[in-house]
Design a binder for these strands. Structure first.
Length: 883
RNA sequence: GCGCGGUUAGCUUAGUGGAAGAGCGCUACCUUGACACGGUAGAGGUCACAGGUUCGAGCCCUGUAUCGCGCACCA
């Protein structure tokens, strides 16, 4: 056969795009929907169409691709469904920023024209994202790609909204929400990030109406006092008990407000008296409802003071704060001010300080939805990996509050509610023709859109066709695993679970694999503002996608953050090159070879050993993948390939390959190929491009690696005896090399070696492998005989003594010192083992195999020790004789 | 305040009960017919600290310190 020539250095650029096209052309990613096969389904966490992918996406998608490629090879009917998310606020902000460069606002364009612009933006960035994903090598079924605002997903959204509304689980009302004055919209609780910031705790005197006294209240937000409608104290608080029911004058507004009693007040904090602003604080809102207090809104949607703020109307909220404090001080109503650190809510998207206030919005009632979602996780029907994230999930759901789902933006799913002039509200799947109450035709649709996460929550089933009962939905739902970062457990994972339970009656996925964040090399979060982000495409361009994937996967332990470091990228690149060159070596040695498969009856000791090791590796990789230990699996393949296959087997093969005996060479070729093939399979999910490229060049394979069969461990290749024998040989070689380097013998220089085996068996093995031993240790001559040369360096491996007799080179004193050091260490080991064996509790309680192992160790150490001692004595005698 | 995670070789880290692993860096040697993105050999670790459980602890339990994260916040 004609051997393939590979370039001496692997060039990903020459391979990757071509290879991806090969997969697409072959339709290998297309889910077959084969009723005979077991399914394995993943839906992609849809990236936002706001911009480009970052390292976190690269990691997330690499993990999914590994799982999907593994299961595909293992014979499952796999579906990895790709798609993107419209990302309401985030995308709208980006487009608005873009317009602002031309001096335009969305209002200049109007709703329709603006939305056209956003669709254009979406098209562009969607294309960019898909391209990036392909560069990474993901094996998604592109024929099933979805978008959260495509027709089907939009239909699912309306279906869910109407259904929940009719069940009374969605309602419209005036409640406390978080308002972002910059984005001009309401937000849900989890879209608010609380940041510790320094502030002032201002103590204000509220004069009493009926007596010449005042009550002092403390606040971090003095400007909200303009909207106070009560002062609350604890009912049991002796200091204020008599005041309850009396009134104070609200300074500046000069309004009388009552002193009320409420359990909520903590008498130990501040002065024990709290100003109550029902329209601007969630706790005050609750108190206001309990006590039927009015709730004047003094800060408006634009973060300016409203008419309710009297003469402060129109002022900016920050300016108003200064003004209020100033005026209070002038009137002597400031008791004191303290430095105070507290958590202030900021908009997750734009970092503006959030204004909590009462507003008419749409809400999802969470309690009835949360309960089943808690139950399924407690019952293990959906399982978090690693397990510790279960608690984060449960914690949130157990304390969840109603979900504000309406957003005052334009980009998103419009709320399917219409209002008639007569005051009637209609919620329906499609726009009603006329008002069912008054028959009027002038219906106005609610201008608001839904929270982006509302549609994302439906993703696992809306993308499979729901609400239609499509074949895909029947076949592939529920999905198997969701792969995502811990930062969106509440936002997304929890919501998918309760929506799926509500509408599908099933969990959306069985496992949730949570990974950590990719940080910069100093451990900081990658961010735009710090400018420390590393662009995955740049790494792919420089090193190749396989390298990036391998770096991310080996740097990763489940649930833990990782640092992205250039050195690790290089290490992975080196590994890719190693694979390439090992394959290159194999291909170079295939002249005049016709592949005939393995011939098990003819295998040599080394052949059996490497097959044994491959078999062990196959088993171990399978075990690790089953546990989602992808990093461990990758490291395991790395070690096997580099240390066992390249460092030992490949070197070992050079002798039979060059000796000129064709039968022997062919046997080695068959093993080289077999093991390479097996490793390529194991490695393919991790490094798909390079493995496919090499696979395509293998002499005897047809078809694509992407759909080759996943290796399973087999009893046929269990050769523990050959493995033990090889370990003896490798041990001897290592020790001899070590001895040579002790005396600085350069590798090329031949030296006499004597091997003195204590057993017949070892003697036989050594004689059989004498040529390899000679070659590997540059021994000439190599003698296997019962001999103990005096002036020599020595080593002991199992029952074989190895000598390097070097008349002129041996420094007796140094050699004695070296051996004595070895003896000290050995003695320590021996003592530990003997200590264990002397402990009768150990003998009684430890498992038999462990005791057995200790006994073996004891025997080995003792023998070794005896030999070392006598060797040292001999050398000492020699030394005295010489002096 | 509550919860979670980290603390292992100079650096980055893997390792959930039976002799401390890897990558990078470092030292010495090597243009050995796949690879210098390489090879060979080596130095380097009381596994944060203190107790406890166990025949046996880096690993399990209880504290402490320290760093990070999340949640909740009492104005």
């Amino acid at each position: 056969m004609t051997p393939v020539k590979l370039a001496p250095v692997y060039d990903p650029k020459a391979v990757e795009d071509k290879c991806y096209r090969f997969w697409l052309d072959g339709n290998y990613f297309r889910a077959a929907r084969d009723p005979e096969k077991e399914t394995f389904t993943i839906v992609i966490p849809p990236p936002n169409v706001t911009g480009s992918l970052h390292m976190g996406h690269a990691l997330d998608n690499t993990i999914q691709d590994i799982l999907i490629r593994w299961k595909r090879m293992a014979g499952y009917d796999t579906l990895w469904l790709p798609g993107t998310d419209h990302a309401g606020i985030a995308t709208q902000i980006r487009v608005e920023e873009h317009l602002a460069q031309e001096g335009l606002s969305r209002h200049d364009l109007g709703r329709e024209a603006f939305l056209e612009k956003v669709w254009e933006w979406k098209e562009e960035y969607h294309g960019r994202i898909v391209n990036q994903l392909r560069k990474l090598g993901v094996s998604c079924d592109w024929s099933r790609e979805r978008f959260t605002m495509d027709e089907g997903c939009s239909k699912a959204v309306r279906e869910v909204f109407v259904s929940l509304y009719r069940k009374g689980l969605i309602c419209r009302g005036d409640y406390m929400i978080n308002w972002c004055p910059r984005c001009n919209t309401a937000l849900s609780d989890i879209e608010v990030e609380h940041k510790e910031s320094p502030g002032k705790l201002v103590y204000i005197r509220y004069p009493m109406v009926e007596r010449d006294d005042y009550i002092v209240v403390a606040t971090t937000r003095p400007e909200t006092m303009l909207g106070d409608t009560a002062v609350a104290v604890h009912p049991e608080d002796d200091r204020y008990r008599d005041y309850i029911g009396e009134k104070v004058i609200l300074p500046l507004m000069e309004r009388e407000i009552p002193i009320i009693a409420d359990e909520y007040v903590d008498p130990t904090f501040g002065t024990g008296a709290v100003k109550i602003t029902p329209a601007h604080d969630p706790n005050d809102f609750a108190i206001g409802q309990r006590h039927n207090l009015p709730a004047p809104k003094v800060i408006g949607d634009d973060a300016l003071m409203t008419a309710e703020a009297g003469r402060y109307a129109g002022m900016d909220r920050d300016a108003c704060r200064k003004q209020v404090v100033e005026e209070l001080r002038e009137r002597g109503l400031i008791d004191k001010e303290e430095e105070y650190s507290h958590a202030v809510g900021h908009c997750q998207r734009c970092n503006t300080v959030i204004e909590p206030f009462v507003s008419r919005q749409w809400f999802v009632k969470m309690k009835p939805l949360a309960e089943p979602a808690i139950k399924v996780v407690k019952e293990g029907r959906t399982r978090f990996v690693p397990e510790r994230f279960t608690r984060i999930y449960l914690n949130w759901l157990e304390n969840v509050r109603d979900w504000c789902i309406s957003r005052q933006i334009w980009w998103g799913h419009r709320i399917p509610a219409w209002y008639c002039e007569c005051g009637e509200m209609i919620v329906d799947y499609e726009a009603p023709q006329s008002c069912p109450k008054c028959g009027g035709g002038e219906l106005r649709q609610d201008p608001d859109v839904l929270d982006t996460w509302f549609s994302s929550a439906l993703w696992p089933f809306s993308t499979l066709g729901w609400p239609e009962e499509t074949p895909d939905l029947k076949h592939f739902f529920p999905t198997d695993v969701l792969v995502t970062g811990y930062d969106i457990i509440y936002f997304w994972v929890a919501r998918m679970i309760f929506m799926s339970l509500e509408f599908m009656g099933e969990v959306p996925f069985h496992d949730v694999y949570i990974h950590g964040l990719v940080r910069d090399h100093l451990g900081r979060k990658m961010s735009k503002s710090l400018g420390n982000g590393v662009d995955p495409l740049e790494i792919i361009d420089q090193y190749g996608a396989d390298t990036l994937r391998f770096t991310l996967i080996t740097g990763q332990a489940p649930g833990n953050d990782q640092r992205f470091r250039q050195e690790n990228v290089e290490a992975s690149r080196n590994f890719a090159n190693k694979i390439w060159n090992a394959s290159r070596f194999v291909f170079m040695n295939l002249d005049n070879y016709e592949y005939q498969g393995l011939l098990p009856e003819k295998l040599s000791r080394a052949d059996r050993w490497i097959l044994h090791r491959l078999n062990e590796t196959v088993a171990e990789v399978g075990r690790q993948l089953d546990k989602y230990e992808l990093g461990e699996a990758a490291r395991c393949i790395y070690d096997f390939f580099w240390s066992d296959y390249c460092d030992w087997y490949l070197e070992w093969s050079k002798l039979p390959l060059t000796k000129g005996e064709k039968a022997e060479a062919d046997r080695v070729r068959s093993v080289l190929l077999y093991v390479l093939e097996g490793t390529l399979k194991l490695l393919h999910p991790f490094m798909p491009f390079i493995t496919e490229e090499i696979w395509q060049n293998l002499p005897h394979t047809s078809g694509a690696l992407v759909i080759a069969s996943w290796p399973e461990p087999t009893e046929q290749f269990q050769y523990p005896e050959a493995a033990a024998e090889m370990e003896l040989l490798m041990g001897i070689i290592k020790f001899l090399r070590n001895l040579r380097s002790e005396v600085n013998l350069p590798p090329g220089q031949k030296a006499k070696v004597i091997l003195n085996p204590a057993s017949e068996k070892s003697c036989k093995i050594l004689n059989e492998e004498i040529e390899q031993l000679q070659k590997m240790t540059f021994a000439e001559p190599l003698l296997i005989e019962k001999q103990k040369p005096q002036k020599a360096l020595s080593a002991l491996v199992r029952d074989v003594e190895a000598y390097l007799p070097l008349e002129g080179l041996v420094d007796l004193e140094a050699e004695i010192k070296r051996l004595e050091k070895e003896l000290t260490e050995l003695t320590k080991d021996l003592e530990r083992t003997e200590g264990k064996l002397a402990n009768e509790k150990f003998i009684r309680k430890a498992p038999a195999d462990v005791v057995e192992k200790e006994k073996r160790k004891q025997k080995e150490f003792t023998a070794h020790q005896q030999k070392l001692v006598s060797r040292i004595q001999e050398l000492k005698k020699l030394l005295t004789a010489a002096n």
